[in-house]
């Protein structure tokens, strides 16, 4: 599915850009964004090292398993594919908390750690598991208690009372979260998304 969406973006860009007389900009954008992708990845390396280092300490000292145990009642329903005291659960919880508090710098590396933990339980390494999809869905709902950068933009535009958006944002993001969880749980049961459909010939 990702492949088709990707193709759709590129094909549309070239056709529309051609008709609009902006094909030069489309070509330039391809080059610029390829560079940007490397810049973003490289800029993540330092912060990734820091957090993966700390997470390794948390893991070896048993802290992550402790967190996993503490939130077992919620996570065993959300992630039936992960054993309840598996370190993946602890990383997932830490990622969600970091996102909620707006500590985005820490959230991404911890989320990646969670993905790595879930990957150890994955039989087919190039195919997403149900647990991974659920985790991603929760993540894309983007629950954040105080959206500081957005409030900053409103203040920059002269807002006297920018914090009024916090309540409505929580409502909207909460709705998105609930929808995401329901959607992911329904979609995982639909035949087109079954893991078997993605296996290479010979693996079946």
């Amino acid at each position: 599915m990702l492949g088709y969406i990707w193709l759709f973006f590129i094909v549309t860009a070239v056709i529309v850009g051609g008709l609009n007389g902006r094909i030069d900009k489309v070509g330039q954008a391809a080059i610029d964004y390829a560079g940007l992708a490397v810049e973003i990845s490289v800029s993540l390396i330092g912060i990734m090292c820091l957090w993966l280092g700390l997470m390794k300490l948390a893991e070896e000292s048993g802290l992550i398993v402790l967190i996993s145990k503490a939130i077992k009642p919620i996570t065993k329903r959300l992630f039936p594919g992960i054993p309840p005291e598996h370190p993946a659960i602890g990383s997932v919880a830490m990622n969600v908390s970091a996102n909620a508090l707006g500590v985005t710098n820490a959230a991404t590396p911890i989320g990646i750690k969670a993905m790595q933990e879930m990957q150890t339980l994955n039989k087919h390494k190039n195919i997403a598991t149900n647990a991974m999809c659920t985790f991603l869905a929760i993540n894309t709902a983007g629950v954040q208690l105080v959206p500081a950068s957005i409030i900053g933009v409103l203040i920059g535009a002269g807002a006297q009372n920018p914090t009024v958006i916090i309540g409505p944002t929580l409502f909207a993001t909460g709705t998105a979260l609930v929808t995401a969880i329901i959607a992911v749980k329904i979609l995982e049961k639909i035949p087109v998304f079954k893991t078997e459909n993605y296996l290479e010939e010979g693996e079946k």
Binding site: M1, L2, I5, L44, T108, G111, I112, M115, Q116, M118, Q119, K125, N126, I127, A128, M132, C133, F135, L136, A137, N139, T140, A141, G142, P168, T169, F171, A172, T173, T175, A176, L177, T179, A180, A183, V184, L187, E188, I190, F193, T195, Y198
Partner: peptide, 29 residues
């Protein structure tokens, strides 16, 4: 980023679920 970090290329229903969540966020807003 997340699937890239573990080398998963077949994302199954993750993308659709994410986009549904985004749409829900728009409507709720």
């Amino acid at each position: 980023v997340y699937f890239g970090a573990v080398g998963v290329t077949k994302v199954r229903h993750a993308l659709l679920a994410g986009l549904i969540a985004d749409f829900a966020a728009i409507l709720a807003s």
